[in-house]
Design a protein around this nucleic acid. Sequence first.
DNA 1: CTTCTTGTTCCATTATTTGGAACTCAATTT
DNA 2: AAATTGAGTTCCAAATAATGGAACAAGAAG
Lengths: 269, 269
Amino acid sequence: MNSRQGDDMKEIRRGRETGTLGKLMALVDLVALADRPMRFTDILSLSDQPRGTLHRQLSHLVEEGLLETDRDGCYLPGIRLLSLASRSWARNEFRTVAEPHLRLLQAQTGETVHLGVLRGTEVIYLDKVEGRQSVRMYSQIGNASPAYCTGVGKAALSALDDISFEARVAGLEFHAYTEHTHRSVAGLRADIEDIRRRGCAFDREEHESGICCVAAPIHSDDNEMLAGVSVTGPAYRVTSEKLQEWAPLVRAAAAAIMQDMQSRLGPRR
Amino acid sequence: MNSRQGDDMKEIRRGRETGTLGKLMALVDLVALADRPMRFTDILSLSDQPRGTLHRQLSHLVEEGLLETDRDGCYLPGIRLLSLASRSWARNEFRTVAEPHLRLLQAQTGETVHLGVLRGTEVIYLDKVEGRQSVRMYSQIGNASPAYCTGVGKAALSALDDISFEARVAGLEFHAYTEHTHRSVAGLRADIEDIRRRGCAFDREEHESGICCVAAPIHSDDNEMLAGVSVTGPAYRVTSEKLQEWAPLVRAAAAAIMQDMQSRLGPRR
DNA sequence: CTTCTTGTTCCATTATTTGGAACTCAATTT
DNA sequence: AAATTGAGTTCCAAATAATGGAACAAGAAG
């Protein structure tokens, strides 16, 4: 109708398209998040672009190595992504500072230790330290999971004050991964309040059946960075008593990481 | 002069800029390859863009999560890279097919096993299986190293015919990582000829002092995909005799991976 | 053989990027 | 205190790149 409405729309849209790059990255996401190689036509139907346009966009992405094509002409995520990520991971300051503490915590508990950062309402796992049973290292690194049903995610959320918390979870959709998953903001809110009091979060099979964890929040003083550290294991080994027993250790690890971050960041500038 | 020359130039240029995306990815590279957080002005001096332009480009990259800024305003690789890479890695067909063979080879030799693919004249490591001593898993995954001084790289190159080999290494610059590193195409060429005859490549401290390896080539029948698998270890443990002893095992692993790839790709289509 | 489906190329139109200059805001020097 | 420098940000006419419709290939299905 009028131009004001148009402007409002623009501002409301979360991922406001960053010109050309935004459209291209949306395609990369589309291909990377799909769980099978995508044909040209598959992508065409999911992205509403004209054929000619889409074709050129994909060509550019392939040329830059962000996507690849297999011999059937299907599109896959490109290897250049791995290459770029490996460097960013190896030199990530937060991760390198936290690493020794993760190892200590792993040694103390014998179970798998995770480090994750909050990104909107998702947790992205930055590191993982496993014990002997080397099932598959790394598999979790880089993974994104919902904050509301993971220990690390809930711990990170608990560092927010009420107003920031509500702003962040507004409009969040709850997916019932298990019968214990929170189904509404109300349930999550109550849990978060407990977590604030307790200083650590429990995940009792909320994200995956048979998997429990205890996590503690890590955050910068201005809450610009929200993260968490957790100890995870199978429910038959990780009983409620174990979770209680490990809670102080996890809190201590989180505290140590926060302190190291401060002393690392302070003097630098 | 004439248009032919122009066309030739275009074809010769490796990273021909893909319009907007090419320029932006060049910036991502610049930031990701630097070994310290980059200030706006640092980037300004390295990329020859006007200030205004560069500023908008970086803003877009940050908005899309490919880059991030720390509290000092320095630019770092973004966490979204990790997230995208993790998905591409987890579902990489070649890697998943190869994985069991890498594990077997690791068990047979007790040393670290690598899987890498050739990209131009660089090897990118796709997977790594280590034994007990869990120094730092993953660290190598995604890493790019020159083909001419790594076992995997030389093995992959050996699958090329003479013409393709010369075309690929034309203009290659040799950096002397150790005293054993090849310094010229001539030396590399001779080595490659031996590798072709032998069916496997040796790296005797050519890339890193004190590190030796034996590698075998993996390639699709049309040589569109060139890769290699290797067993690596410290020189004091990995003697020449060991390398000879492991050579058949490595060749067998490579052969098995090739066969699995074929039977996987064949029926699919 | 004809008709779909899938993928590729072309080019005038349209929208985005460009780059120079002007501006802000500290920190440093005079 | 005023002036100068350095670092980063914003603006807008001009240059450039992206767009999208249509036409063109090339198989596969009917």
